[in-house]
């Protein structure tokens, strides 16, 4: 494992911790898209079907379990917790995420590394992850204001993608048989989706002001 991949995993982990902190400390999930969170839970559940069939490392196994558990915890909290649920911006979170699931599944049936149950769901999870941030970005766009923790959550999530791209570049040059264009192209698409958000994040950071998105 190289430093970029590790930095990517860590920023991914930090993003989830920031999200849990926000929900736990403020007892509020305003600004957070339940649809994006449900998509992430689906992403991890379908990608880590290999949890019991392929062992990579203790690190991988623990991280997979953490990602599955934390994504389910966020969804459960937003749906079931009496106080948290009340702060959910339901009227702003209207992105039709079922289309993203359908599109990703069709693409996974057509473009995969092998036409097997596990490989199709692996490809599905990669495509869905690339698109899963869309309901979240649309919600932020609609509400205009972005509170600090929500902004940091999305920032770390974007940093994770950026580090993974550096990781693939590094692996491309250092490993003999590194070719995983499905993950690379999807990862690139996902990072491009963040570009707009990053722009406004850095502007607010530079001006030391609360982050605001244009209407």
């Amino acid at each position: 494992m190289n430093i970029f991949r590790f930095a990517g995993d860590m920023t991914h982990l930090i993003s989830i911790l920031v999200l849990l902190l926000k929900i736990y400390a403020t007892k509020s999930c305003s600004g957070i898209s339940l649809k994006t969170q449900e998509l992430y839970a689906l992403v991890f559940l379908t990608r880590y079907l290999d949890l019991f069939t392929d062992f990579i490392s203790v690190y991988n196994t623990i991280m997979k379990l953490v990602f599955i558990a934390s994504s389910l915890a966020v969804v459960c909290c937003m749906r079931m917790h009496r106080v948290v649920r009340r702060s959910y911006d339901k009227d702003l979170d209207t992105f039709r995420h079922y289309f993203l699931i359908l599109a990703s599944f069709v693409l996974a049936l057509l473009v995969n590394e092998k036409f097997t149950f596990q490989e199709i769901f692996w490809a599905f999870s990669i495509y869905l992850e690339a698109l899963a941030i869309l309901p979240q970005l649309v919600l932020l766009q609609r509400s205009g204001n972005v509170d600090n923790l929500t902004g940091q959550y999305v920032f770390f999530l974007g940093a994770y993608r950026a580090f993974y791209i550096l990781n693939w570049i590094y692996r491309y040059f250092t490993e003999q048989h590194f070719s995983r264009w499905i993950a690379c192209v999807s990862g690139l698409v996902q990072t491009v989706l963040y570009a707009d958000f990053f722009y406004y994040y850095f502007i607010s950071w530079k001006n030391n002001a609360k982050m605001q998105l244009p209407a």
Binding site: I56, F67, N167, H177, S179, A183
Partner: peptide, 10 residues
């Protein structure tokens, strides 16, 4: 022979 690509990333 080229090693098969396993999904070793998260």
């Amino acid at each position: 022979s080229p090693k098969e690509n396993v999904h070793d990333e998260l």
